[in-house]
Structure formats: C-alpha cells, structure tokens
Design a binder for these strands. Structure first.
Lengths: 165, 165
DNA sequence: TTAAATGCAAAGGGTTTGCACCGGA
DNA sequence: TCCGGTGCAAACCCTTTGCATTTAA
C-alpha cells in the first residue's frame, strides 16, 4: 500500500493523482513499479479491459470481460488489482443502483459545485460523489449529466443547524 | 402485493402515494388494512423504529433497533415489511456509500429537475433518485441538499447520441 | 374461517481473506 | 534471491426464499 499516491482526506486531489491521470493507462506499468509493485499479465489484462470502459463498470462486468481475454482470471485477483489501481487514483469505486460495486475509470477532475444558501460558500463535489450523482440519473431516465454544469444548493455542515432561511 | 398502491412506471406519483404521506405514520395501520393487508405486532415495532429515523437508515440498523424493542425480531420479517411499506410509498430504498440497503423514511414528494441541453425538455427527478443524490452529498461533506432547488443539466436519452452541443 | 404474516433455516450472490505456491524485479 | 502476486477455496455479510405454523380480520 503505497501511501505516496493515496489521497483520502483533502478536498481535491491534484499533484500526485493528477500526474497519474495525465500519463493515463500508458504509464501504469511504470507507475506501479515506481511504487515497488509489479506489472503482471493479470494486471495487464485488467487494464486492457479498463481501457474499453471509459465510463463506469461493475466489478462483475470487469471480471467477466477479463475472463474473455484470459480464461484463468479469478475474482480475487481482479478485486485486489482494482484496490491497487484505486490507490493510484486510476479508478474510483462506488455503488450502483443495485448495490453492487461499481468502478469509475480514470475519474475526471471535472466536478460540480455545492452552494450553501446559509453562508454563501461553495465547495467542489468530489469525483466519487459526482459519479454517484451521474450514475443515479443514468439509472433513472438514461440521462447523461454534464457534471461541470452542476451546482446544487443546500446547507453545508456548519449551516445545517442554523435555519437562517 | 396490492398493486393499487404501487407506482412504478409513471414519472411522478401523486394521488395515492401523496395521500399516504399526508396521514404519515398515524394511518399506517388503516392504510395497510385498506389494502387487504394486516397490522401485526412486528409491523408495529418496525414502524415505531422508523418513526425515530426520519432521515435514512440501513436495513441492518433497522433490524438491530427492532431487536432492542422486540428480541424475537427476525430479518426476513423486517425485509418483507419494508417491501410492503415501500409499495405504499412510506419508505424508499437505495444503497448507501458502503453498498448496503438503505431505506429513506417518508420520502418527500419534493423533487429536483433535469434539463436537457439537447432538446430543452425538462424532467422530474424521481424521489428515489433524488434521495440517492441527497445521500451522496451528505456522505461527502455533510451537505444537506435542497432538492427543490436542484436542476441538473445534461442530455436525455434521446439527445444522448446527437451531440448538438 | 381463511388468507396473510411469521419464523426458521437454508440458499444465494457478490466480495473478502488465509495460505501455499509462483514469478516479476 | 525476495517479496509481491496469484489461485483456490472457504469464509462472510447482507438479503432472499421455501415451507410449515401462527394469527389478524
């Protein structure tokens, strides 16, 4: 678990993860190796599959696709590799409408905004959260959300208890 | 399974479900009976628990809480009762950040809108979908979304393939 | 009385983990 | 050589289902 490439707490990942996104999939092998990890045939297969799914996919779909390319693919390896890729910011996982694990490939830095009607402040919607919104609406009416145009109003944590409406 | 109180296909449930929401929990017993269903001690226990959670809860939490009030509570009964309540629009289920079943108590009829930048049409965001958005943002920054003020732009299913942007 | 509801227990599906062996670097 | 990865299988968690029994209406 290379903590160097992990970003959990902060609002918006930028430097490290951004660089990884820049080299996209072409540099995955080197990226992993740079972190002391290894580039294996199984991981290559998964990345090949991920290349095909620029949007979002369920773990089950990924496993099935991998099996088409390599019949010896096992679920555990896929899940473990996805964990690794997630630590490098190459995928992000959430949950679809049916509750299954859903992975977002190469999460874009495009994000929506939150506007607090209490204090007027704005926040960025984190990629994973934005993806959840996109998914919810895609499942609803097959609607393709333009995340960059999304601004949702409401009340931030701080203003939540003070109804200065 | 009383189809009379179920609304699945249409855009926005109104009459039937709205009436149910109006009487809130006070009329659940009669509401069920009116549908040919029965009011049992187990259902009463669950409703008592639901009264405490005006927001959203996981099925597991509900089961645990029910057990505190009635040690003989069994998961299957809770799940089945939740299904029934959902048919009456008293709860709506989705999935939380961890992928577990999450139930939204007394889902409001307040809803957001979708705007298609392709054809200019608008749609209502269904309650369950809106709930998913609310949850996602609550999990993100503890942000309380004002669904009635939400309008998300993007492309509807029909305009999805014709990039007239 | 009668059909709905319960409780139990077992099945089910997706995800995770332990452990011995394999194989990149 | 060495430590990370893999594969297998069993474990897990939550949720669903079948069936005999109970019970609300």
């Amino acid at each position: 678990m290379p903590q160097s490439a992990t970003n959990q707490g902060g609002p918006a990942p930028a430097g490290t993860v951004g660089a990884a996104t820049a080299v996209a999939w072409d540099g995955v092998a080197d990226l992993l190796r740079a972190g002391g990890l290894r580039w294996t045939p199984q991981r290559r297969t998964l990345v090949d599959v991920l290349k095909e799914h620029e949007g979002h996919v369920t773990a089950t779909e990924l496993i099935a696709r991998c099996r088409e390319l390599d019949r010896t693919t096992t679920p555990s390896t896929v899940y473990r590799t996805l964990d690794v890729l997630e630590e490098f910011g190459l995928v992000a996982h959430g949950h679809g409408p049916d509750g299954r694990e859903e992975y977002h490939v190469l999460p874009e830095q495009v994000h929506g905004h939150l506007y607090c009607s209490g204090c007027g402040a704005t926040w960025e919607i984190r990629p994973e959260t934005g993806a959840a919104i996109v998914d919810a609406l895609a499942a609803d009416l097959g609607f393709s959300v333009d995340l960059s145009h999304v601004t949702i109003s409401g009340r931030c944590r701080g203003c939540h208890d003070s109804p200065t409406d």
